[in-house]
Protein backbone atom coordinates (compact mmCIF):
# COMPACT_ATOMS: atom_id res chain seq x y z
CA UNK A 1 0.00 0.00 0.00
CA UNK A 2 1.52 3.31 -0.99
CA UNK A 3 1.84 6.16 1.46
CA UNK A 4 -0.69 8.36 -0.32
CA UNK A 5 -3.31 5.65 -0.41
CA UNK A 6 -2.83 5.10 3.30
CA UNK A 7 -3.36 8.77 4.03
CA UNK A 8 -6.52 8.88 1.93
CA UNK A 9 -7.73 5.93 3.85
CA UNK A 10 -7.26 7.76 7.12
CA UNK A 11 -9.28 10.73 5.91
CA UNK A 12 -12.02 8.48 4.63
CA UNK A 13 -12.14 6.67 7.92
CA UNK A 14 -12.10 9.90 9.86
CA UNK A 15 -14.93 11.31 7.80
CA UNK A 16 -16.98 8.29 8.68
CA UNK A 17 -16.63 9.27 12.31
CA UNK A 18 -19.87 11.09 13.21
CA UNK A 19 -18.60 13.32 16.03
CA UNK A 20 -15.64 14.42 13.92
CA UNK A 21 -17.95 15.32 11.07
CA UNK A 22 -20.29 17.34 13.28
CA UNK A 23 -17.41 18.93 15.14
CA UNK A 24 -15.46 19.92 12.05
CA UNK A 25 -18.44 21.34 10.18
CA UNK A 26 -19.62 23.28 13.22
CA UNK A 27 -16.17 24.66 14.02
CA UNK A 28 -15.62 25.68 10.41
CA UNK A 29 -18.95 27.51 10.26
CA UNK A 30 -18.14 29.54 13.38
CA UNK A 31 -14.56 30.14 12.24
CA UNK A 32 -15.85 31.36 8.86
CA UNK A 33 -18.37 33.70 10.52
CA UNK A 34 -15.55 35.06 12.67
CA UNK A 35 -13.22 35.53 9.70
CA UNK A 36 -15.91 37.20 7.60
CA UNK A 37 -16.39 39.76 10.38
CA UNK A 38 -12.92 41.13 9.58
CA UNK A 39 -14.21 42.34 6.19
CA UNK A 40 -17.93 42.59 6.66
CA UNK A 41 -20.62 42.45 9.33
CA UNK A 42 -24.34 42.92 8.68
CA UNK A 43 -24.15 46.25 10.55
CA UNK A 44 -21.29 48.51 11.64
CA UNK A 45 -20.80 47.84 15.36
CA UNK A 46 -18.63 50.92 15.90
CA UNK A 47 -21.56 53.21 15.16
CA UNK A 48 -23.84 53.19 18.17
CA UNK A 49 -27.46 53.91 17.47
CA UNK A 50 -28.91 54.37 20.93
CA UNK A 51 -32.49 54.85 19.76
CA UNK A 52 -32.36 51.31 18.30
CA UNK A 53 -31.42 49.60 21.56
CA UNK A 54 -33.07 46.45 22.86
CA UNK A 55 -34.82 45.64 19.58
CA UNK A 56 -36.12 42.11 19.13
CA UNK A 57 -35.22 39.92 16.16
CA UNK A 58 -36.34 41.39 12.83
CA UNK A 59 -35.46 41.23 9.16
CA UNK A 60 -32.85 43.99 9.56
CA UNK A 61 -31.48 42.71 12.88
CA UNK A 62 -31.75 38.92 12.76
CA UNK A 63 -30.86 38.48 16.42
CA UNK A 64 -32.01 41.89 17.67
CA UNK A 65 -29.84 44.68 19.09
CA UNK A 66 -27.97 45.23 22.37
CA UNK A 67 -28.00 48.07 24.92
CA UNK A 68 -26.07 50.38 22.57
CA UNK A 69 -28.32 49.55 19.61
CA UNK A 70 -25.63 47.39 18.00
CA UNK A 71 -26.66 44.44 15.87
CA UNK A 72 -26.33 41.25 17.92
CA UNK A 73 -25.35 39.05 14.97
CA UNK A 74 -22.55 41.44 14.04
CA UNK A 75 -21.48 41.59 17.69
CA UNK A 76 -21.40 37.79 17.94
CA UNK A 77 -19.32 37.54 14.77
CA UNK A 78 -16.78 40.11 15.98
CA UNK A 79 -16.82 38.63 19.46
CA UNK A 80 -16.17 35.14 18.15
CA UNK A 81 -13.27 36.53 16.10
CA UNK A 82 -11.59 37.97 19.20
CA UNK A 83 -12.18 34.74 21.11
CA UNK A 84 -10.73 32.64 18.27
CA UNK A 85 -7.70 34.89 17.83
CA UNK A 86 -6.92 34.91 21.55
CA UNK A 87 -7.28 31.14 21.77
CA UNK A 88 -5.31 30.48 18.56
CA UNK A 89 -2.35 32.63 19.53
CA UNK A 90 -2.38 31.21 23.05
CA UNK A 91 -2.33 27.66 21.68
CA UNK A 92 0.47 28.62 19.29
CA UNK A 93 2.52 29.93 22.20
CA UNK A 94 2.06 26.62 23.98
CA UNK A 95 2.76 24.62 20.85
CA UNK A 96 5.87 26.56 19.83
CA UNK A 97 7.47 26.65 23.26
CA UNK A 98 6.06 23.59 24.99
CA UNK A 99 6.64 21.05 22.22
CA UNK A 100 10.39 21.68 21.75
CA UNK A 101 10.82 21.65 25.53
CA UNK A 102 9.07 18.29 25.83
CA UNK A 103 10.92 16.76 22.87
CA UNK A 104 14.32 17.90 24.02
CA UNK A 105 13.56 16.76 27.57
CA UNK A 106 12.78 13.30 26.26
CA UNK A 107 15.81 13.04 23.98
CA UNK A 108 18.43 14.65 26.21
CA UNK A 109 17.19 13.42 29.58
CA UNK A 110 19.26 14.19 32.67
CA UNK A 111 19.19 17.53 34.39
CA UNK A 112 17.43 19.23 31.47
CA UNK A 113 14.53 16.78 31.63
CA UNK A 114 14.35 17.23 35.38
CA UNK A 115 14.20 21.02 35.00
CA UNK A 116 11.44 20.86 32.39
CA UNK A 117 9.43 18.43 34.49
CA UNK A 118 9.76 20.54 37.63
CA UNK A 119 8.89 23.66 35.65
CA UNK A 120 5.78 21.88 34.43
CA UNK A 121 4.84 20.84 37.94
CA UNK A 122 5.35 24.41 39.09
CA UNK A 123 3.01 25.82 36.44
CA UNK A 124 0.46 23.07 36.95
CA UNK A 125 0.38 23.78 40.67
CA UNK A 126 -1.38 27.09 39.99
CA UNK A 127 -4.96 26.93 38.80
CA UNK A 128 -4.79 28.44 35.33
CA UNK A 129 -7.48 31.07 35.84
CA UNK A 130 -5.89 32.32 39.10
CA UNK A 131 -2.52 32.75 37.43
CA UNK A 132 -4.13 34.47 34.50
CA UNK A 133 -5.79 36.85 36.96
CA UNK A 134 -2.40 37.54 38.56
CA UNK A 135 -0.81 38.29 35.20
CA UNK A 136 -3.58 40.59 34.03
CA UNK A 137 -3.77 42.26 37.44
CA UNK A 138 -0.08 43.11 37.29
CA UNK A 139 0.18 44.12 33.63
CA UNK A 140 -3.30 45.54 33.25
CA UNK A 141 -6.36 44.03 31.62
CA UNK A 142 -6.17 43.66 27.84
CA UNK A 143 -6.66 41.04 25.18
CA UNK A 144 -2.89 40.76 24.70
CA UNK A 145 -2.26 40.04 28.36
CA UNK A 146 -5.06 37.49 28.28
CA UNK A 147 -3.31 35.81 25.36
CA UNK A 148 -0.03 35.70 27.25
CA UNK A 149 -1.70 34.40 30.41
CA UNK A 150 -3.55 31.63 28.59
CA UNK A 151 -0.51 30.88 26.42
CA UNK A 152 1.77 30.35 29.40
CA UNK A 153 -0.64 27.71 30.63
CA UNK A 154 -0.49 25.87 27.36
CA UNK A 155 3.28 25.46 27.59
CA UNK A 156 3.37 22.68 30.22
CA UNK A 157 0.41 20.93 28.56
CA UNK A 158 2.25 20.61 25.27
CA UNK A 159 5.58 19.88 26.95
CA UNK A 160 4.03 16.98 28.82
CA UNK A 161 2.15 15.59 25.84
CA UNK A 162 5.16 15.76 23.52
CA UNK A 163 7.54 14.30 26.12
CA UNK A 164 5.13 11.45 26.81
CA UNK A 165 4.70 10.78 23.12
CA UNK A 166 8.44 10.95 22.54
CA UNK A 167 9.24 8.52 25.37
CA UNK A 168 6.84 5.96 23.92
CA UNK A 169 8.72 5.86 20.60
CA UNK A 170 12.25 6.71 21.66
CA UNK A 171 13.06 3.05 22.36
CA UNK A 172 12.13 2.09 18.78
CA UNK A 173 14.83 0.63 16.55
CA UNK A 174 14.76 3.46 14.02
CA UNK A 175 15.68 5.94 16.72
CA UNK A 176 18.59 3.75 17.73
CA UNK A 177 19.54 3.50 14.05
CA UNK A 178 19.48 7.27 13.71
CA UNK A 179 21.61 7.59 16.78
CA UNK A 180 24.09 5.03 15.44
CA UNK A 181 24.33 6.91 12.18
CA UNK A 182 25.61 9.88 14.12
CA UNK A 183 22.51 12.07 14.49
CA UNK A 184 22.55 14.20 17.61
CA UNK A 185 19.73 14.44 20.13
CA UNK A 186 18.47 17.70 18.66
CA UNK A 187 18.20 16.26 15.19
CA UNK A 188 16.54 13.11 16.49
CA UNK A 189 13.99 15.11 18.42
CA UNK A 190 12.86 17.25 15.51
CA UNK A 191 13.44 15.04 12.49
CA UNK A 192 12.58 11.61 13.83
CA UNK A 193 10.29 12.06 16.79
CA UNK A 194 8.28 15.19 16.00
CA UNK A 195 6.60 13.85 12.82
CA UNK A 196 5.58 10.74 14.69
CA UNK A 197 3.83 12.57 17.51
CA UNK A 198 2.16 15.14 15.22
CA UNK A 199 -1.20 13.44 15.58
CA UNK A 200 -0.99 13.72 19.37
CA UNK A 201 -0.21 17.41 19.08
CA UNK A 202 -3.06 18.05 16.64
CA UNK A 203 -5.54 16.41 18.98
CA UNK A 204 -4.19 18.30 21.97
CA UNK A 205 -4.31 21.58 20.03
CA UNK A 206 -7.99 21.21 19.27
CA UNK A 207 -8.71 20.51 22.92
CA UNK A 208 -6.57 23.45 24.06
CA UNK A 209 -8.27 25.69 21.52
CA UNK A 210 -11.64 25.07 23.11
CA UNK A 211 -10.16 25.53 26.59
CA UNK A 212 -8.57 28.76 25.36
CA UNK A 213 -11.91 30.08 24.18
CA UNK A 214 -13.40 29.25 27.57
CA UNK A 215 -10.46 30.89 29.36
CA UNK A 216 -10.77 34.05 27.27
CA UNK A 217 -14.49 34.18 28.03
CA UNK A 218 -13.75 33.68 31.73
CA UNK A 219 -11.09 36.39 31.87
CA UNK A 220 -13.18 38.90 29.91
CA UNK A 221 -16.17 38.07 32.09
CA UNK A 222 -14.31 39.07 35.24
CA UNK A 223 -13.07 42.22 33.45
CA UNK A 224 -9.47 41.12 32.91
CA UNK A 225 -9.59 40.21 29.24
CA UNK A 226 -10.77 42.13 26.22
CA UNK A 227 -11.70 45.75 26.99
CA UNK A 228 -14.44 47.84 25.35
CA UNK A 229 -14.85 49.15 22.69
CA UNK A 230 -13.36 45.88 21.39
CA UNK A 231 -15.64 42.97 22.01
CA UNK A 232 -15.43 39.27 22.75
CA UNK A 233 -17.95 36.64 23.71
CA UNK A 234 -16.92 36.80 27.38
CA UNK A 235 -17.14 40.59 27.41
CA UNK A 236 -20.63 40.46 25.89
CA UNK A 237 -21.65 38.16 28.75
CA UNK A 238 -20.16 40.52 31.32
CA UNK A 239 -21.81 43.62 29.89
CA UNK A 240 -25.22 41.98 29.72
CA UNK A 241 -25.17 40.44 33.18
CA UNK A 242 -26.79 43.36 35.00
CA UNK A 243 -29.44 43.48 32.23
CA UNK A 244 -30.19 39.79 32.45
CA UNK A 245 -33.52 40.13 34.27
CA UNK A 246 -34.82 42.66 31.74
CA UNK A 247 -33.18 41.55 28.48
CA UNK A 248 -32.06 37.92 28.89
CA UNK A 249 -31.31 37.39 25.19
CA UNK A 250 -28.28 39.70 25.42
CA UNK A 251 -26.62 37.15 27.72
CA UNK A 252 -28.14 33.96 26.31
CA UNK A 253 -26.87 34.55 22.76
CA UNK A 254 -23.16 34.94 23.55
CA UNK A 255 -23.48 32.17 26.14
CA UNK A 256 -24.95 29.79 23.58
CA UNK A 257 -22.28 30.78 21.08
CA UNK A 258 -19.52 29.93 23.56
CA UNK A 259 -21.17 26.59 24.32
CA UNK A 260 -21.57 25.77 20.63
CA UNK A 261 -17.99 26.65 19.69
CA UNK A 262 -16.51 24.70 22.60
CA UNK A 263 -18.77 21.74 21.93
CA UNK A 264 -17.87 21.60 18.24
CA UNK A 265 -14.16 21.94 18.94
CA UNK A 266 -14.31 19.15 21.51
CA UNK A 267 -16.26 16.87 19.17
CA UNK A 268 -13.71 17.55 16.45
CA UNK A 269 -10.88 16.88 18.88
CA UNK A 270 -12.33 13.59 20.05
CA UNK A 271 -13.00 12.53 16.49
CA UNK A 272 -9.48 13.45 15.42
CA UNK A 273 -8.04 11.42 18.25
CA UNK A 274 -10.05 8.38 17.29
CA UNK A 275 -9.01 8.74 13.67
CA UNK A 276 -5.35 9.57 14.18
CA UNK A 277 -4.53 7.31 17.09
CA UNK A 278 -5.65 3.78 16.18
CA UNK A 279 -4.61 2.37 19.56
CA UNK A 280 -7.06 4.57 21.44
CA UNK A 281 -9.84 3.86 19.01
CA UNK A 282 -9.36 0.14 19.42
CA UNK A 283 -9.40 0.31 23.18
CA UNK A 284 -12.34 2.67 23.05
CA UNK A 285 -10.62 5.02 25.48
CA UNK A 286 -12.51 8.27 25.14
CA UNK A 287 -11.69 10.30 28.18
CA UNK A 288 -12.12 13.97 27.48
CA UNK A 289 -8.67 15.44 27.84
CA UNK A 290 -8.37 18.66 29.67
Amino acid sequence: MSKIEKRENIFKKAWGHLSLRIGLIGSIIFALLAIISIFWTPHDITLLNISNRFLGPSSTHWLGTDFFGRDMLSMLMSGALTSFIVALIAVSIGLLIGTPLGLLAASYGGIFEWLVLKGNDFLFAFPAIISAIIITAIFGPSAINAIIAIGIFNIPVFARVSRGGALSIISNDYIAAARLSGRNNFNIAFVHILPNIASLLIVQSSVQLSLGILAEAGLSYVGLGTQPPATSLGLMLKESQSLFLLHPMLAILPGLTIIAIVLFLNLAGDGLRDALDPRLAKQGALDSAG
Binding site: L47, L48, I50, F68, P228
Partner: peptide, 20 residues
Amino acid sequence: RRGGQIIASQLRQVGIELEL
Protein backbone atom coordinates in the same frame (compact mmCIF):
# COMPACT_ATOMS: atom_id res chain seq x y z
CA ARG B 1 -17.18 53.89 30.52
CA ARG B 2 -20.42 53.60 28.59
CA GLY B 3 -20.64 57.33 27.87
CA GLY B 4 -17.11 57.22 26.46
CA GLN B 5 -18.04 54.63 23.87
CA ILE B 6 -21.07 56.65 22.83
CA ILE B 7 -19.15 59.93 22.57
CA ALA B 8 -16.39 58.21 20.58
CA SER B 9 -19.03 56.93 18.19
CA GLN B 10 -20.60 60.39 17.88
CA LEU B 11 -17.34 62.27 17.32
CA ARG B 12 -16.25 59.74 14.69
CA GLN B 13 -19.08 61.10 12.52
CA VAL B 14 -17.15 64.35 12.05
CA GLY B 15 -13.75 62.69 11.74
CA ILE B 16 -12.54 62.93 15.33
CA GLU B 17 -11.09 59.53 16.22
CA LEU B 18 -10.92 58.93 19.97
CA GLU B 19 -8.78 56.27 21.58
CA LEU B 20 -10.53 55.09 24.77
